[in-house]
Amino acid sequence: MESNKVAEQLQEYFQSIGNNRKVLTVSPDELIPLMYRLRDEYEFNYLTDETAVDYGDYFEVIYNLSRVPQGDILMVKTKVDKEKAEVPSVFEVWPGAIWFEREIFDLLGIKFTNHPDLRRILLDDSFEGHPLRKDFQWVGGREV
């Protein structure tokens, strides 16, 4: 089934859904019900990757889903406000999201609500700031 059809069928349940080729966009409020639906009804049983982008004014969290039996992929994006960067965690849908979300939290500072273990994963715990944000300024280097 094409992701267009997935989007069309989902449109009656979710107001915020948008569709552009193989990309679905959805607001953070409707993210978790949509993800449950995609997993249970459309058999997207594997979260290939979860990442995020800083576009300057806002963040976008990106979920790459795939369904292993059919070999399809689907990208789901959700727009996050810069000031209040909070997204519900999808770990209850795919438990493997825990580490992805820790990495996004570490490098971009997006907070995942309901995440069971939201700590830094790549940088040391005393690090201040989130280095992949566009406004991150690093002072230091060889001989400070």
Partner: peptide
Amino acid sequence: ISGGPFVDSYSVVP
């Protein structure tokens, strides 16, 4: 020796 290409990185010991 010196941090190499990552000498100015925020996460590497130089």
